[in-house]
Simulated assay, not measured.
Amino acid sequence: MSTTQSDHFKQRRLVEFKDGCRYGRFGKTKAYELIARERIKAYKMGGKTLIDLDSIDEYHASLPRVESRAMI
């Protein structure tokens, strides 16, 4: 099976909006901003917005590392 096919069949880890915010450690305003900027993925199911936890993991992994400015 090719990578594209395996990605298609991959189980998504979707949670309700508030649980996605809790998992990502951000509020709803930041979540909507990240969705609009396509940094995290969201889906609609009926009237509910579901957030993909893998996209939150990818977003966190992309954040820049803080460099220490400690003086020796």
Rank of each mutant, 00 (worst) to 15 (best):
R39I: 03
F17Q: 06
L50D: 02
E16T: 07
A36L: 04
I56W: 00
K10D: 00
A31P: 01
G47F: 10
F26T: 09
V15L: 05
K30P: 00
V66G: 01
K28L: 03
D54A: 12
R65A: 09
C21Y: 00
R37T: 10
E67F: 03
K30I: 13
S6P: 00
R25Q: 11
R13D: 15
T49W: 06
R22F: 03
S6I: 00
R13C: 10
L53P: 13
L50W: 11
A31I: 08
A42R: 11
F26Q: 03
E58H: 08
K18H: 13
R22A: 14
E16D: 13
I35S: 00
L53K: 13
V66K: 06
I72N: 11
I56L: 10
V15N: 05
G47T: 13
H60T: 05
H8E: 14
R65Q: 07
I51D: 04
Y32P: 00
K10C: 04
K10P: 02
R25A: 13
K30F: 03
I51K: 05
K48N: 09
E38Y: 08
D54F: 10
G20H: 04
I51Y: 06
D19L: 14
S2E: 08
S68L: 12
A42V: 08
L14V: 07
M1P: 12
I72P: 05
R65T: 14
V66R: 03
M45K: 15
D19E: 14
D19S: 11
H8D: 02
I35M: 15
R22H: 07
K28I: 06
Y32G: 00
I40L: 12
H8M: 12
G47V: 10
D19K: 15
A36R: 15
M1F: 05
L53Y: 09
K41R: 15
V15E: 04
A70N: 07
L53M: 13
M1V: 13
D54H: 12
E58F: 10
A70M: 10
G20N: 03
G46E: 10
Y32Q: 10
R39A: 12
I40N: 09
L53V: 14
K18Y: 12
L14A: 06
K44I: 05
C21H: 07
M1G: 08
S62W: 02
M71A: 11
Y32T: 06
C21F: 04
A70Q: 10
H8C: 11
D52H: 04
R39Y: 13
Y59H: 15
R25G: 04
S68K: 02
L53Q: 12
R69L: 10
G24Y: 04
T49D: 02
R12D: 07
D54E: 13
R22Q: 10
G47C: 05
A61R: 11
S68E: 07
L14S: 04
A42E: 06
S55D: 11
F17R: 08
S62E: 09
D57V: 05
R65S: 09
